[in-house]
Amino acid sequence: MPVLISVALRARDAIKGMWREAAKFGVVGALAFVVDNGGYNLLVFGLPGGAQGGPMNTYPVLASVLATSAAALFSWIGNRYWTYRHQHRERLTLELVLFLVANGVGLVITAGTVYASRHLLGLDSPLSDNTARIMGWVLATLFRFYAYRRYVFVAS
């Protein structure tokens, strides 16, 4: 019986720890989402009510790459110094390279959904772009959470 209690307590502690980690990751991700989607919409569609569109209205995939890159930088700072502050590597360069690789995959996922929406499905409205980006963000976020936990923010 003591073995079962010990296993149950360890399982509870592991879930409790992961819940806190996931919550912090979610807060950083939500703020990065604002940076990403806000930046994308400003670059492609301009300010609300503006008739001309944004400065990159003819380059939506490049705008997606730039906005996602800005969000990734924000995310690295937030995750390194808050979410995983006790687990980051001593070698900052290696951690940053692994983070950039994980976010490069996430960037391809997010930009790929915009590409598919625009070029494969022929959709070009703000609603279709944002729907594609949200779908990409969901997939990319699941991938990033796994990659950060498993490869990036691992104590050396």
Rank of each mutant, 00 (worst) to 15 (best):
E90C: 00
L107F: 08
L139T: 13
H119C: 08
A116K: 06
G136V: 01
Y84S: 00
Y84K: 05
N130T: 09
A140F: 02
G112R: 01
F99E: 03
A102I: 03
G104H: 06
V108I: 14
F99W: 05
T110M: 06
R85G: 04
V114N: 04
S117D: 11
T113H: 12
T83C: 01
N130F: 09
G122R: 11
A132E: 04
H86T: 14
D124A: 12
L127Y: 12
L94W: 10
G106P: 00
L96V: 10
V105Q: 06
L98Y: 08
L96W: 09
V105G: 08
N130K: 11
W82E: 04
H88T: 01
H119K: 11
N130R: 09
R91Q: 13
Q87I: 00
V97I: 13
G112W: 05
A102R: 00
L96K: 00
V108K: 01
L139N: 07
G112T: 02
L92C: 10
V105C: 09
R91M: 07
Q87H: 12
G104I: 02
H88Q: 09
W137A: 15
G112E: 02
T83A: 05
V114A: 09
V108M: 15
L120T: 09
S128F: 11
R118G: 03
V138G: 13
E95S: 02
V101Q: 05
A140V: 06
H88Y: 14
N103M: 06
M135A: 15
E95N: 02
G122P: 09
